[in-house]
């Protein structure tokens, strides 16, 4: 029991320390914080104006705003978690993580918490733009239900990020290019800027493999009601995201262990500039 408590305390301290570096690093550059909060939301503004230009009903603008806010989390999952081990490798720090007694998942959790803080600021700015600039309206909603949907979405997304991080352990610049290639195609397949139903069978398929698709659809259902043109009943989507969270955490644990060994055998952990 004591060993378990010690292990939990060690991993908690490791997660807190990794989150601390990220939060302090972010706060050290206030101009970066402003640009970090504002710039990612500009794409959302363009898509809202596109809907205006083609004469779409107002509810479509709300769909795009909610999707746009969620893009910030997806980008954070990809770059702040998935590709982070690649960055660490480039800076020669990765081997320190592997020499440390804590779990690699504790370090990734710290990255997630540290990154989430900045991402929440970014999404609040996105919501403010949606409400005060584009005057999007939402239906009356339960804040508890919204919180449940939001946190299950985040848990599933960041668990996916941990799995991606393990895959990127092996890779060099492929990690960088994969992250780049996974931005807009995922926006498309997740229906971030349009109702996922519009994709037909493809939309149903992506909902079955990507938590972001379900998360954005569930958030829209909570905030917009029938105007969300939801794909599945809300309860089903929440249950599916919980299942995704468990699945990705297990996958991350297994693949981190496996790929760590593989990367060590192939001598890739300390390999830079490949």
């Amino acid at each position: 029991m004591s060993a378990l408590a010690d292990s939990l305390a060690l991993n908690w301290r490791a997660a807190r320390a990794r989150a601390y570096v990220r939060v302090v690093g972010t706060l050290r550059e206030p101009q970066g914080l402003v640009s970090d909060a504002l710039f990612p939301n500009l794409g959302m503004c363009a898509f809202v104006l596109f809907y205006r230009a083609i004469g779409a009903p107002k509810s479509f603008e709300a769909l795009a705003v909610i999707g746009g806010v969620l893009t910030t989390y997806w980008v954070n999952v990809l770059w702040g978690m998935g590709a982070q081990f690649y960055w660490e490798k480039q800076q020669g720090q990765l081997q320190l993580y592997f020499a440390a007694p804590c779990s690699r998942m504790a370090i990734l959790t710290g990255m997630a918490i540290g990154g989430l803080a900045a991402t929440i600021v970014r999404s609040v700015v996105g919501i403010a733009i949606g409400v005060f600039v584009f005057h999007v309206h939402v239906e009356a909603f339960s804040p508890w239900l919204l919180a449940v949907v939001f946190f299950t979405t985040m848990a599933a997304l960041y668990a996916l990020g941990m799995t991606l991080a393990s895959l990127f352990l092996l890779y060099g610049r492929e990690a960088w290019h994969t992250c780049n290639a996974l931005i807009e195609p995922v926006y498309l397949l997740s229906g971030l800027y349009f109702p996922i139903r519009t994709l037909g069978v493809l939309g149903s398929f992506t909902a079955g493999v990507m938590p972001l698709t379900l998360g954005v659809d569930a958030l829209r259902q909570v905030l917009l009601g029938p105007a969300a043109r939801g794909l599945l009943p809300l309860r089903v989507e929440i249950a599916a995201m919980c299942a995704f969270t468990v699945l990705f955490l297990v996958l991350a644990r297994v693949s981190l262990g496996h790929l760590e060994n593989l990367a060590k055998r192939e001598g890739r952990l300390t390999q830079r500039w490949q």
Binding site: F50, I54, A56, G172, A181, E184, Q274
Partner: peptide
């Protein structure tokens, strides 16, 4: 970092996806 085919796929995935997003948004409306 990659063979030419993979490099090509990575290079064109983003612009084609944005084009398709616009097309699907237009179709949704």
């Amino acid at each position: 970092w990659a063979d030419p085919l993979l490099f090509f796929i990575y290079g064109v995935a983003r612009p084609l996806a944005v084009a398709l997003i616009l097309a699907v948004m237009f179709r949704a409306v």
